[in-house]
């Protein structure tokens, strides 16, 4: 049952990504025509200038909202089944990461009515979910160190909010850099992109602090020390420091603008490093056998 909703979410997000990217490419009439000729007969219906772009975006939003709903359903079903949040292995955690990206994006789209951002962020959520579905979903039992349903659920749930908002900030920064360089008129203004990036970080930064603190709390309960320079611990500190640097840089002459946007890109690279890190640096966060 939960697998069906995951597949439904995957399909919805795949289609949403297509519509979002399409609306970006089709925003000006000329570009719409070019896509139509290149993409074959199925796209030629979209010729009336202007209309297809907003139409496509609306479909994108609708589909992304559907994807979010299916993912939410999946998380609820999975949590009911296991008794803790669906965060105990890479499969569950990746699908939840996708949920975080999507939820943060939908909140920003709702607030700022900027759909262009979806062309970057929604495919990222789709990619994360696609990655999740390549990992076997079987419910591996929890090793002793992870047997703390409350902390497992809260620690990881909070990290998903942080990662999701950082993904949105990354999307905004990427568009910022493109907009600042080629002055692409179809993109929102640099000021708005800067604000979206900042707004996302204002949510993500406190949440990331909470992730680290809850991790320290858990480490203190399970291992008897709140900080031990474990690679994942350290990587999450690096991530937090980068966003801390961003918050200061954004107020400085010579650092606001391009360099701040680059810090957001770097910050998300650190998020991905922290996230995928345990696949290669081992440490206490390896999900197989601890102790």
């Amino acid at each position: 049952m939960s697998q069906y909703s995951l597949v439904a979410a995957l399909i919805a997000l795949g289609l949403a990504s297509v519509f979002y990217v399409w609306q970006l490419l089709a925003r000006s009439g000329t570009r719409a025509a070019r896509v139509a000729t290149a993409g074959g007969p199925s796209l030629t219906v979209a010729l009336p200038t202007g209309a297809p772009a907003s139409g496509a975006a609306r479909y994108g939003t609708l589909l992304a909202a559907n994807g979010l709903a299916f993912l939410t359903l999946w998380m609820i079903l999975r949590s009911l089944y296991t008794g803790h949040g669906p965060f105990s292995n890479m499969h569950e955690f990746s699908a939840a990461f996708s949920w975080g990206i999507l939820a943060a994006y939908m909140a920003i789209e709702l607030r700022y009515r900027v759909r262009v951002l979806g062309a970057v962020v929604v495919p990222a959520a789709f990619g994360m979910l696609a990655y999740a579905s390549t990992i076997p979903a079987d419910q591996a039992p929890l090793v002793p160190a992870l047997q703390n349903n409350l902390l497992l659920t809260v620690h990881v749930a909070v990290s998903i909010v942080a990662y999701g908002t950082f993904a949105v900030a990354f999307g905004a920064a990427l568009l910022y850099l493109v907009r600042a360089r080629i002055g692409e008129e179809r993109l929102p203004s640099v000021a708005l992109l800067d604000e979206i990036g900042y707004r996302s970080v204002t949510i993500g930064f406190p949440f990331m602090a909470l992730v680290i603190i809850l991790g320290a709390l858990w480490a203190d309960v399970a291992w008897g020390r709140y900080w031990g320079w474990d690679p994942k611990e350290t990587a999450s500190l690096v991530t937090w420091l980068i966003y801390g640097a961003y918050l200061h840089a954004r107020t400085l002459r010579g650092w606001k603008g391009d360099r701040s946007a680059l810090l957001l890109v770097l910050g998300f690279a650190a998020v991905l490093f922290t996230y995928f890190g345990n696949l290669f640096f081992g440490g206490l966060h390896s999900y197989a056998g601890v102790t």
Partner: peptide, 24 residues
């Protein structure tokens, strides 16, 4: 100066990252 703070944060980030990459 906020600039000093920023430089210090970035330096600390860089060496902390090195400590993540290299086994301790």
């Amino acid at each position: 100066s906020v600039r000093t703070a920023l430089v210090l944060i970035l330096l600390l980030t860089a060496v902390t990252f090195a400590g993540t990459m290299v086994i301790q």
